[in-house]
């Protein structure tokens, strides 16, 4: 389920739980919760599925919000942004997959040329911490730097006899 669908599903469950409230108050509550979610996501600086789930978890089940709304005039506990922010450092985004990806992209590139960075990219795409856009940018960086020179060299090489400026490794290893 994507991030927008998660928010939509949460609000739908909230409205279903709030049927006991007056219609006006129910709509107002849904608007307040939506606004709170948007603010928490803006504060988090990301809208990926993990962040949305974290924000919704901090809000608590829709039933509890409705119960708190019926039992008190003030906002339900957990509505302030502080708990969301305070909990973020506790759950570090660095898991084994993310650490492996960065190690393979850096040290792996030195000790396992070509294979290291490619394996690193596999781990990057396995991670749920980076968005698809961020994964695509990281992949583009590696692909552009690694493969464009090869393609250019092969393109130039196919046009004539090899010269010292082309990718033709063997003659230059001893040079």
């Amino acid at each position: 389920m994507n991030a927008e669908a998660l928010v939509h599903d949460y609000l739908r469950r909230l409205e279903a739980a709030a049927t006991a409230l007056p219609a006006g108050r129910r709509a107002e509550l849904a608007g307040e919760v939506r606004q709170h979610i948007e603010m928490a996501l803006a504060e988090a600086g990301a809208r990926d599925e993990v962040t949305v789930r974290n924000v919704l978890d901090r809000l608590g089940p829709p039933d509890e919000i409705v119960d708190a709304e019926r039992g008190a005039d003030g906002p339900p506990p957990g509505w302030t942004l502080a708990p969301v922010q305070a909990s973020a450092p506790a759950s570090s985004p660095w898991g084994a997959v993310e650490i492996a990806a960065v190690l393979l992209l850096t040290a792996g590139a030195i000790f396992l040329p070509i294979i290291g960075p490619l394996l690193g990219l596999v781990f990057v795409w396995m991670s749920v911490q980076w968005t698809n856009r961020q994964k695509t940018i990281a992949t583009a960086i590696v692909v552009l730097i690694l493969f464009v020179p090869i393609i250019l060299a092969l393109g130039v090489g196919s046009g004539g006899a090899p010269t010292s400026g082309q990718l033709s490794p063997i003659p230059y290893l001893g040079a």
């Binding site: 393979l104 850096t106 590139a109 990057v124 590696v142 730097i145 690694l146 230059y172």
Partner: peptide
């Protein structure tokens, strides 16, 4: 292209990508 230069590009590519991903992660935690 000189092979030595290309061999230098390999770690550079990985390191640049890693720096970008780490920066993204740090920015998200702020």
């Amino acid at each position: 292209m000189d092979v030595a230069l290309y061999l230098l590009l390999i770690p550079l590519a990985g390191i640049l990508a890693a720096v970008y991903l780490v920066a993204v992660m740090r920015r998200r935690r702020k």
